[in-house]
Design a protein around this nucleic acid. Structure first.
Length: 118
DNA sequence: GGGCTGACATTGA
DNA sequence: TTCAATGCCAGCC
């Protein structure tokens, strides 16, 4: 790596890139993205990137609804403007959501480190 | 310029 | 097995 600081700058972009790579009907976790970026414990930053995505993305649409916590729980649903927007967005893609929890999460789980073979 | 917060995850006891 | 503490990066005060 030529510049460590550059990696930090790309952190958010990497997060957005990975999230956008998530195919419809699939979901991923903060930890999976964090691990893919190199820091398994940086899940917090990934979640923060999601919040920034609301303002930063603007032009680019980041399917934040496909990014949930490791429990399969829709933690950031309230940040979608509507408490049910996230759930409905997932259901619209064929994902079954019950009680703010993704059903068949294991099957719906999409790991960038595995799928992208990185 | 320094410190706190935040949509989590992992490990230890 | 469950509960608690710590780590991570960027943004905001």
């Amino acid at each position: 790596m030529k510049d460590v600081n550059e990696r930090y700058r790309n952190f958010f972009q990497d997060v957005y890139a990975v999230v956008r790579l998530v195919p419809p009907g699939r979901v991923t976790t903060y930890g999976a993205i964090a691990h893919y970026l190199g820091s398994r414990s940086a899940a917090r930053t990934v979640g923060w990137a999601m919040q920034s995505a609301h303002t930063f993305s603007g032009d680019e649409f980041v399917p934040c609804h496909r990014v949930i916590n490791r429990n399969g729980m829709l933690t950031g649903k309230q940040f979608f403007g509507s408490p049910t927007a996230m759930q409905e967005a997932l259901e619209a893609e064929g994902i079954v959501v019950h009680d703010d929890q993704v059903q068949d999460f294991a099957q719906r789980f999409w790991d960038p480190s595995t799928e992208l073979q990185a």
